[in-house]
Computed example of a mutant assay.
Amino acid sequence: MMNFSELSVISAFVMVFCGLWKFIGYYKHLLNSLLSLEFMMLGVFWLLSMQVTVMGGEVYFSLFFLTLSACEGALGLSLLVMIVRSHGNDRFSSFNLLEC
């Protein structure tokens, strides 16, 4: 029988791998890619916070990681807004690398 900590670690790894599978498999829209990246970051944050609490370390490192992932999300959303305004949609097939 598994205890709660082992089940939490397994579910965090499942979150990371499901996000990675979604990121690799479904790349038609930029928004889907950004959401899968955020899902992976949430799984990594969960693993990091569990590891810090088990080792008895400081929680500030996990808060720093959470701050950086929030900044990454804001940067991704601003990129999404810029692409939708310039191209009209967020499909990867409509992007032309030769346009300015």
Rank of each mutant, 00 (worst) to 15 (best):
S86P: 07
F13T: 03
V54K: 08
L97H: 02
L34V: 05
T67V: 06
F39R: 04
R85T: 01
L31C: 10
F61G: 05
G57W: 03
L98A: 15
N96V: 00
Q51K: 13
L34T: 03
F92G: 10
N3R: 07
C100A: 10
I10R: 10
F4M: 07
L7T: 14
Y26F: 11
C71A: 14
F95A: 02
H29I: 02
G43E: 06
M2Y: 01
M41K: 10
E99V: 02
A12D: 01
V81H: 08
G56E: 05
V52Y: 09
G56V: 00
Y60I: 00
I24F: 14
L98Q: 15
Y26D: 11
L68R: 04
L37C: 07
Y60V: 01
E72A: 11
E6N: 15
L66I: 04
F61W: 04
M1H: 07
V59S: 14
T53R: 10
F45C: 12
F61D: 07
M50E: 11
M41N: 09
F39E: 04
V9H: 08
V52W: 11
M2C: 05
C71Y: 00
Y26H: 12
L7R: 10
M40T: 00
L30A: 08
Y60F: 00
V84E: 08
L79M: 07
Y60R: 05
G56R: 06
S11N: 12
F64P: 01
S69R: 12
M1P: 15
E99W: 07
F45T: 09
M82W: 06
F95S: 03
N96W: 00
V59K: 10
N32R: 06
I10P: 05
V44Q: 11
F61C: 06
F95K: 06
E38T: 01
N96G: 09
F95T: 00
N89T: 02
V14E: 14
E99N: 15
T67D: 14
L97D: 04
G57M: 09
L35F: 07
F4V: 07
F65D: 04
N89A: 11
D90M: 06
C100M: 15
V9N: 15
V16I: 06
L77C: 12
V9C: 12
F65C: 07
S78N: 09
M55S: 14
A74I: 03
I24L: 09
I83A: 12
H29R: 15
S62I: 00
S49W: 08
V52L: 14
V44A: 10
T53K: 09
Q51Y: 13
N32P: 07
G57P: 03
W46G: 04
M50T: 02
